[in-house]
Every structure is written in C-alpha cells, then in structure tokens.
Design a binder for these strands. Structure first.
Length: 424
RNA sequence: GUGAGCAUGGCGAAGUGGUUAACGCACCGGAUUGUGGUUCCGGCACUCGUGGGUUCGAUUCCCACUGUUCACCCCA
C-alpha cells in the first residue's frame, strides 16, 4: 500500500453503489422539502477566487487561516476550493444582481466542500453540505422559518431527537461594544488564559466563550465579562425576542446558549446549531446581514444554514443500520445452450424495451452458475432459453421464489409479465 | 498543529523468532445428461504496508517512512 495510484487522497471517500442509495434518498428528501418551502436550487462553482473566502468567511477564522485548499492556477490567479457554501452563493447573488428580484430570494445548494483538516470520525476533507440562504428579508419571521426548515430537514431524514441551540451574536452596533468590554475585563487575567484564548483575546474575543478549557471558563466568570447576549443593543434584543416567540408558536423547542459562537465571522444576530446527543453538530446557521455588502453588493440582509450530509448519513447509519437494498432486478436471462445466445439477447432487448429490468451473464458461465448469479442479483424470475426453446420459439419462465416453471411462446412473454401473470 | 492506537488473502479475523500462516464470509469447481437459493466434497496468502537494522533465521524484536483510525483543536 501507500500507493499513490491505488489509494484515494486522505480525507476523501468513495461512495459505493450500495451506499449511493442513501445519498439519493437524502437528496430527494431535501429537494422535496425545499420545493415545499419555496426555495430554488442554485449551483455555483466548486472553486472561487481566494479573496472571496478570505473576506467573506473571515481572515481570523480557522477555515481561512489553515484549512483552505488554495492553489495558483495556470493564469497566476489564486483560487480556492470552496470550504463552505454561503460565500459562493452570496457572490452569485451579487454578480447576477438577484437583488433585483421584487421578493425575498430563497436559494438552496447541495454539493461538495473542501477543508484541509485532519480526518476523523464524521470529518472529511471533501465533505458534502446541503444549505439554504434567504436574501433581502430581515424580520424575525424569516429566522424562525429558516430554523424550522433546518430542523425539518433533519427530522424528515430520520433524526428524532434534534436539539436546537440558539444564540444572538449581535450586530455592527453591539458587537464592537461588547468586544471592547471583553478586552477590558479580560486583559487583567490574560496570563491565566490558555494560549489559544490569549490569541483570541486579541483577534476575536467572542470565541473565548467557545473554549473548552475549564480555567478559561472560570476566568470568564470571575472577570465579569458579559456574554454577547447580555450586551445586545435594543434592536437586536427585540429581534431575538421575536425569533424566540415565533419558534415557540411553531412548537420548535430550543435551548438558549449564550456561549454559542459560530466559527465563521460573518454572522450577525441569530445563530444556531442543531445537535444530537453524543454527536458533534450536524447543522448550523445564522444571519449575516453585512455579508452581501461586504461582497460588493447593496446592503442586503441574509440568513442561512448548512447541514453536514456526511455526518447526517453517518448518524442515520448508526441509528438504522439495516442494509440498503440494491436496485431490483426482475428478470435474468439464462442461456442454456450457446446456440441460443443470439435468441437470448433478442429477448433481453425486448424485455428492456418494455421497461422491465433485465440482465444476463457476461462471463460465459455454465447454466448452473447463471442461475446462481440470477439468485445472487435478486432476480424474481429467470427466462431460460436453449436449443429446445429456440426451435419452438418459446421461453422457459422460472419463478425463483417458488421454483415453478412454465413454458410460453416468446411472443407472449412481455405481455404475460406486464399483465401481472407473474404474480404466482 | 498536538497526542494515542493499528497495518496479515476480496472482506472480517487468529497467530508464532525457525519445516505446510488458523478460522469465518465471499468467490470458483464438483456431487451423471439443460435448473438456482439448503447440504456435502474440493479449491483459493512463493506471503503477513514500504525500506532498513538485530539475528544462523523474522510476518512475529528495533528504527524510519507511508497509510489509516480515534481524541484534542476547530467545524458540518
């Protein structure tokens, strides 16, 4: 091993036929749901100019600092494989002037994202996300709807015990104010903080709330540094209250978590995560009212979320480990004698032309082995043709479940099967 | 980036410093003439991730490399 030719790149995965079924299922589920909620699909490039992510996602985020797949193309431009979906959708929104639409713009996407991380359980370098974005509407009703959709996607996919953690991270009015307060309160304790938090204190103090280190959390308490939730401006407070009221009326249970800080810098006001007991978060989102302007568009509010599909499927596989069914084969054509080879292929074509899933052996196996293959492939019936059938223009139709077999004229085979004559 | 574990046939998985590397699954063939799924019989690793070292001798001991898994970090 260790062979570059025969080994996939680290952090990637092959989705084999037996698993693709699950992917198709989940994709169908989200598409249907999006349609019901009035979202339209958008497909943006899998790579963008590096600048878009650096500016959009945030220079100080881990994603931008150390996780991007960035390279220089042959034209000397720096491009980056998208590490998340929102930035590209925002860019497309601006570039294509979708802000010209008279109504709120509701979009969804689904596809691969790339982050240079150390792979582990539920964490890949090429990951897959499904996400929704709403542009041009700033009311709390939108926040509530988007959260509701987020939860519904997970429920419909088969997750029962989804928990929503909710927070508000403020806006361009209250955030800078809060930041100042944090720096002021925490600087005297700087030495006690872990090295990461010392750095955070300078670059993004809000993230200290997210630190798992108990000492840091102790320092936070002791210092009297306010949570962002305690520092919201009036407008943000009103908005947040509105969101909660709407969620309650929609019977979506949530838990307010004042320490919830999302890893992307563009979030404003509402931020949330969907978690399942025992797993890392499977989905998360937030409002990003400044992002469109940041990307060069007109001042436009936005909000969205993303679901980690690989994680979602992993959890589903844990919870419902039943085997995925292979696609159903109806008929396997067994050629009992080489002289009937062409005859068999003609019949195979007739079956397929009639929309009946049919297959045959391609390896020149003997009859016994062909029947074995038919059984293995899950065929309901075999059509057996040999010298005898050829000479009489008939076929043998064997029911693999009951083992019974009958002979009927070739011309009647398709009709017989379609009329449900195969029921016994 | 930090730490720990693991690398044996298509898959799962034993094992030992020394003549033939268990076993299970899968696969292939056979059990009389053109009939599967059950059963029975037989077959299926010049070789134990790569390179080097110790040794009379290593798949088993040591080192390096590579890969992989898990945790931390962070995130979906």
């Amino acid at each position: 091993m260790g062979d570059l030719l025969t080994q996939r790149p680290r952090g990637t995965t092959d989705i084999l036929p037996q698993d693709v079924v699950r992917w198709q299922e989940i994709e169908r589920t989200v598409r249907e749901l999006c349609q019901v909620y009035g979202y339209q699909e958008i497909r943006t490039p899998v790579f963008e100019h590096t600048e878009l992510f650096a500016r959009g996602v945030g220079e100080t985020t881990d994603i931008v600092e150390k996780e991007m797949y960035t390279f220089t193309d042959r034209g000397g431009r720096s491009v980056t494989l998208r590490p998340e979906g929102t930035a590209g959708v925002v860019r497309a929104f601006v570039e294509n002037k979708l802000y010209g639409w008279a109504d709120a713009v509701k979009l969804y996407y689904i596809g691969p994202m790339f982050r240079y991380e150390k792979p582990q359980k539920g964490r890949l370098r090429q990951l897959h996300q499904f996400g929704c974005e709403v542009f041009g509407a700033s009311g709390p009703d939108v926040d509530a709807e988007v959260i509701a959709l987020n939860v519904e996607v997970l429920r419909r996919s088969g997750l029962r015990d989804v928990q929503v953690e909710l927070n508000s991270v403020g806006c361009s009015v209250c955030r800078p104010r809060h930041r100042e307060q944090m720096v002021e309160k925490l600087t005297p304790f700087k030495e006690q903080l872990c090295t990461d938090c010392q750095r955070r204190l300078e670059r993004n103090p809000l993230r200290i709330f997210d630190c798992k280190n108990e000492i840091c959390q102790g320092v936070l308490m002791e210092s009297g540094a306010p949570t962002i939730l305690e520092s919201l401006c009036d407008d943000c407070q009103i908005h947040f209250t509105g969101v909660q009221a709407l969620l309650q009326s929609e019977r979506i249970t949530f838990k307010i978590n004042p320490r919830l800080v999302r890893g992307l810098d563009y979030y404003t006001r509402t931020a949330w995560e969907c978690v399942l007991p025992g797993y890392s978060s499977v989905a998360g989102g937030g409002r990003y009212n400044g992002l469109v302007a940041e990307a060069g568009g007109p001042e436009t509010p936005g909000i969205g979320f993303a679901v980690g599909l690989d994680r979602l499927l992993m959890i589903l596989a844990d919870k419902q480990p039943e085997k995925s069914a292979r696609s159903r084969l109806q008929i396997f054509v067994v050629v009992a004698d080489p002289t009937a080879q062409v005859y068999g292929m003609e019949i195979l074509q007739e079956l397929r032309a009639a929309g009946i899933a049919a297959d045959k052996d391609y390896l020149g196996k003997g009859m016994k082995a062909q029947l074995k293959s038919a059984d293995r492939l899950g065929a309901a019936f075999t059509v057996i043709v040999g010298e005898r059938e050829l000479s009489k223009a008939t076929v043998g139709l064997k029911n693999l479940v009951t083992g019974s077999q009958l002979e009927l004229p070739r011309a009647e085979l398709v009709e017989y099967l379609q009329s449900g004559g195969d029921k016994q």
